[in-house]
Each structure stands twice: as structure tokens, then as C-alpha cells.
Write a protein that binds this DNA or RNA. Structure first.
Lengths: 366, 366
DNA sequence: GACTCGTTTCAAAGCGCTTTGGATGACCAA
DNA sequence: TTGGTCATCCAAAGCGCTTTGAAACGAGTC
């Protein structure tokens, strides 16, 4: 059943039927209801391809998943982000198009998407430092929103990001307030923008207290359980091991916890852990009360917001780039506690006033 | 630059240009090279929508991600599966279309996809017992391949599945051979087909040795770290606790491991763990040598194979349904060992011949 | 030289929709 | 009655491609 058929059965022209269904004013109320009832009765659905060709709008959003040819790892937050974005697209009548692009010919992938013309906009995932995709997409004139940001990008662009720097600064401050001085950072791969910002936040907090950065206490790598375990094992073997760990993912935190507990120590008493928590569906940090003290920010929610932003951008293409900075929430769980009595310097005791728990941070730029 | 423009610059008709580019024989070799060189030079790319409208082929595959309105959980294996499938689609010139469908109106979602006509086929994810989507899609006449199977489906359909029953039967046998008699099953949600089959395999192996099933030793639920931990905690508290755990995911296994180690016991000596390992990019079971003894089957590879199967199905729509049963590989890691000396019955000692390690199972139906 | 045949190219008709630019009445004011 | 204004509806021209049916042309055959 296509438009022409429907029009014929109604004794109307395709023009009128089309207008009736698409809410144009040049059609009487009576005809409109008659048409839309017939459409429902015959289960008519306009052919997407034809509509697209006629309107020039693809009614689809592209998501390009970068896959590192080296690690072959798919970012585990991706599924949740997509789920959030997908909700928004579905409501707005948009399709979601996925492309897997190995990172060695990303540019080609984006150019091809552009010239095939089957999406109206793109969400850029996993931005790296000075990411070349930003100038590329700007040049191509394809609306896009970056999930994250790219340090060192010169052109203005639309993005949605968690305030990673502030989150990690805050987490570090929290541990410092608890009296910790040897705080380890188990970070993601540091060519990724979010990891760069997290490290920056960590370093800022340390510097503010006049604590020297110890390179032996920081590592970066893929955020897996094994990474956390390996980092903890190596750092526990140091002459002056850390009393607290700051990790970039729940998986890493779980690895740290395992090694620490295997050494006969107790998390939250002997060793503290704070982790970032993307609040993924299948990787929950406890049910009601968090297990790990964590800076939490829902990736799913980020997906929803980024999608809305992109749709708005497509609606008004000449508007200035938008951006949204989400603040992570610091949730105090059972994995943190005062630093064990300090041998070296017994004067620096935990401050009596602990930071407030679940209040979002203030909204300054990160 | 569209076909007409290109034709004009070449001094040819659109017909000839189209034929030259699409490899039709009615064009001389000289013209063909001239055309394709011009196309490359002008970076011409045929408009997807127009092509689709003209040919009637959407050149896209739909993936429908079911989201439970109750749990709101996105299956973590999804990202890897998609990555595998996406490779194949990209090579074949197909797009990948994602739809998020809450499980309360799945039927509507599939009907809509069908009538909008923007995919040539569908991959069905997360089949449940007697899944209604199979008769629905058959009725709609849309080619589809199920990742998994649906126990109790009456119509023939195309599927690709891991031999879950055999894998878990084999894992159970392995533990039995090591002398374990109290073997716990930490399963996925048992309305999912794969979980039903896994339980069946487990029960088959126990029955074959005349071991009664103890309901207190089996649980099912979402496969998270917390699930594993909770199960281990509950079961360790039994008067006759299990000496071995069989889990459905690495995350669950990690939860079990944590609780067991926290009790001061050693994995592989005091308590054994075998898990199923989907070989996900971000959740590796060790690098070279596996940490957990596991039945392994790559989800990414499954994605590739399912995609190929669907494309073949689309090529020849009248062919009989296809199917592919993948056998998991049993990899012996450090998490299993002989059952601790049995108090009740010291005669049942571990058999001296251990099952062979990395050989795939035989290919019988599961 | 007329005819057939194969090769190479083209004009034009779709694919199913939107949208521009009327056409047709009905209604009212003058 | 005439002219103008609305409110409705429609014919036809695209959107950019494929594909059918036919034309043009040179070469081979008698």
C-alpha cells in the first residue's frame, strides 16, 4: 500500500493525502481525519527511501565506533550510550546508523558517510587529543556532537562531556582530606581526552596541597580488571606503597581490590579506593549503597543529552555550537576511610570535617 | 556531484555512466575506465537514498536491541557482536541500523521496521523461550538470523548459536573428573534461551554420574559481579558448601572469586571455578594463559558469522533456513584443581587422567 | 549495395514521495 | 453581475538513481 494506492481508494490526489498526513494546513479537517483513518486502517506507512529522496533529509543519525587496530577493543560504555541516544532518536522518528571504523582510516570513513548522504548528523565517540575528526567534520559541513572534548582543538564545535578534571580533582581532595598522601592514579589510555583531563584534575589537587607528584604512583592503560590488579601489585611492592587508589573504571577498581585483599588488607581501612563510575547497566556499583566510593555520571543519560543536542543542531544549522558539561556526583561508599596512621609524619591527621557526600559539584569549567 | 553532472562532464548519458560504474557488460572497456577514473577524480559517490529507491534494496541490516523495561540493562556482549557484524557489513557495502526496542512492544517495533522498508534483513538478539519474534518475522517475510535459538519454536528459522548445553555439560564433567561433587551453577536469567540450555547441560552431566541435583546449589540472575558475590556468599553458608562453581560470565566468576578469597580460601585449591567466557574485548580472561578455567567462544566472531549468514540469506531468499552451531573451547586456567579431600567419601578421588585442555568439543547437537 | 547482426550508447519511464504553482468553487462585498 | 478573497484540492515537476526498449553505428555476409 503506497501513497498513490491510498489516494485512489480515497478518491483523492496523492498531494492531498500527503498533506493531510504531514499536517499541512491546506486541507480541511474532515478530509484530514478521513485520510488518517484510512491510513491507519490500511496500515499505510510512507516508504522511508522515497521520503528521504524527496525531502533530502536522511532522518538518520550516524554513530561511528572507532576500533583501534592495535587493541581491537570496543569501548564498553558504548552500548549504554547508544541505548540512551536510541531512545531519543526513536521518539523523534530518526534511525540510528552504526559504522565501525578502524582508526587507521577514520577520515575515509567520515568522508564516505558524508558523500553517501545517509545521515543528517554524527555523534563522535572517543575523542583524542587534538582530534582530527573535528576539523574534518567541520570542513565537510556535517552537523556533529562530540561525546567528550578534544584538548587542543582550535575550531569551535558542539560537545557534551563530563567534567572529568573536576571529578578527579574532587576525588583526590576527598582522599587528601582523609589524610592520604600516597595516592595512586590508575588511569585510562592517556591519548584519550578524558584520561588527560582526569590526570590533570588529580595533579591539580595534589599541587594545591603542595604534594609532589610521584610518577611511580601513576599508570595508564586499558581499563580492565587485569590492569587494576597489575597496577596494585606493582605499587604495593614499592618501598612506600600507596594508601589509596584512584581508578578510572569499576573494572580497574575491582582488580585493585582483589590484589589488596589477597595481601590480607582490608579495603576502606588499610587501603582506600575511589573510582569513576559510568553507571553502566551491567556493571553496577552496588544497588542502593555504593560499594566503591565513586564519582558517578550516567553514560546512558549522556547519550540521551547528546542525541537531543544533535537533533537541535540539525533543526537550526546556523546556530552557534552548543555544549554541555555534566558534573559527576561523588558518592561515598565503603571503599574509603581515613589513611592508616602515618609513620613518617604523625602530625598530618585526617581533617575532622569530611567532604559532603552526594551533592553535585559546582558548575565551573573543567 | 551527481550522476547527471558526471555524465555531462564526460559527454555521456547517465545511463552509460550508471552502467559503467555498476559493472554492466553493455559498455566498452575504454568507456568504463574513462568513467570510473572521472568518478574517482570528482569524488563521485552515488546518493544512497536514490539508489535505494530505484533498486528497492535498502542495503542495510537492522539490529534490534531488546531492552527490558524492568532491568533497563543493555546486554554487555552486544557491543562486541556488533563490532564483528559491522566488519562484514562494511565490506559488503551494507549499513547497520540499530533500534532500541523496549520489550513491552517489540512486535510493534518489528512491524514498523518492516513497513518502513529500510532494512533488507534483521538480526534477532537475546532469544527467549518460544520467542514470539520468530513467527512474527516469518509472517512479515523479512529475512532474519537469530543469535541464539529459541527452545520451543515450531517453525524452521535461521540461527547461529554456541553449543551452550554441551559447553556446560563438558565443564561440569571436567569438575566431576577432578573429584568435585558439590558443584554450584551461577546461571543467567533462565527465561533466556542460552541460560536454559546451560542449565540443561549442567543437569545432564550430573545425572550421567548419578549425582542428585541440589536446588540450593543453583541460582540465576543478571550476570554481574554482585550476582557472583551474592551467590558465593549464600552458598558458602550452606552446611555442605560447594567445592566448585560454574558461572555464566566472567563478571559473575569475579564475584565468586572475591567472596571465596575474602574467606581466606584459595581459588584452584580450596574452591574451583569454571566460567563461560564470551571473549569480550574489554573483559579478558588473562592474556596468554587464562586466569579462569573457561568455556570460551568469541562473541565477535559470532557477529561476523551471523552477518555473513544473513547476507547469504538475502542473496537467495528462497533457500532453506541455515544454521550454525559453534562449539566452545574448554581452556584450563588456574582456577580449577582437584576437589579438596572429601570428608564424606574418601574413596572418590580425582581421576588421574584429566580431560584434554584446548581441543574443541565434538560437533554434536546441543 | 542491401541486409543482418552485435556492439555501444541513449531517451525516457519509473521507484514513492514532497512541493510548487495553479485550478476550482464557494462566499461575500460592491 | 462582477470581482476579489478564501478554502480546498489537484497536476505535474522534481529528488538521483536504475533499467527497459530502442536507436545509431560499424562490421560482416550474401
Amino acid at each position: 500500500m503506497n501513497l498513490k494506492d491510498l489516494a485512489r481508494t480515497l478518491g483523492l490526489s496523492p498531494t492531498t493525502v500527503s498533506r493531510a498526513l504531514n499536517g499541512y494546513p491546506e486541507v480541511s479537517a474532515a478530509t484530514r481525519t478521513r485520510v488518517s483513518e484510512a491510513a491507519k486502517a490500511h496500515n499505510y506507512r510512507p516508504n522511508t527511501q522515497a521520503k528521504r529522496l524527496a525531502t533530502g533529509r536522511a532522518m538518520a543519525i550516524g554513530h561511528v565506533i572507532p576500533i583501534s587496530t592495535r587493541h581491537e577493543i570496543v569501548n564498553p560504555i558504548f552500548a549504554d550510550f547508544i541505548a540512551g541516544a536510541g531512545e531519543v532518536y526513536a521518539r523523534a522518528g530518526y534511525d540510528m546508523l552504526l559504522t565501525i571504523a578502524p582508526d587507521d582510516d577514520e577520515a575515509r570513513a567520515y568522508r564516505e558517510i558524508r558523500s553517501k548522504g545517509n545521515v543528517d548528523g554524527i555523534i563522535v565517540h572517543g575523542p583524542k587529543e587534538a582530534d582530527p575528526r573535528i576539523p574534518l567534520l567541520t570542513e565537510l559541513g556535517l552537523p556533529f556532537v562530540v561525546h567528550g572534548r578534544a584538548t587542543g582543538a582550535t575550531l569551535p564545535y558542539s560537545w557534551l562531556d563530563v567534567n572529568n578534571a573536576r571529578a578527579f580533582e574532587r576525588a583526590t581532595e576527598f582522599l587528601l582530606d582523609l589524610g592520604h598522601r600516597r595516592i595512586a592514579l590508575v588511569n585510562g589510555l592517556e591519548f584519550m581526552d578524558f584520561a588527560i583531563r582526569r590526570r590533570r584534575g588529580y595533579e591539580t589537587a595534589l599541587a594545591a596541597r603542595g604534594i609532589a607528584l610521584d610518577p611511580a604512583l601513576t599508570t595508564s592503560g586499558e581499563m580492565t580488571e587485569a590492569q587494576g590488579a597489575a597496577a596494585a601489585r606493582a605499587m604495593r611492592a614499592l618501598p612506600d606503597p600507596p594508601t589509596a587508589f584512584l581508578t578510572s573504571s569499576l573494572l580497574s577498581a575491582m582488580g585493585v581490590r582483589r590484589v589488596v585483599e589477597a595481601a590480607g588488607l582490608r579495603i576502606g581501612r588499610d587501603v582506600s579506593i575511589v573510582t569513576h563510575d559510568d553507571d553502566l547497566g551491567y556493571l553496577k556499583n552496588g544497588d542502593d549503597e555504593p560499594i566503591f566510593t565513586a564519582t558517578r555520571s550516567s553514560v546512558r543519560d549522556a547519550g540521551r543529552r547528546a542525541a537531543k543536542m544533535l537533533l537541535a543542531l540539525i533543526e537550526s544549522p546556523d546556530a552557534a555550537p552548543r555544549s554541555e558539561l555534566l558534573e559527576a556526583v561523588l558518592l561515598v561508599g565503603q571503599s574509603t576511610g581515613p589513611a592508616p596512621a602515618l609513620r613518617a609524619d604523625p602530625t598530618t591527621l585526617p581533617s575532622p570535617t569530611l567532604p559532603s557526600a552526594s551533592a553535585p559539584f559546582s558548575g565551573e569549567q573543567g
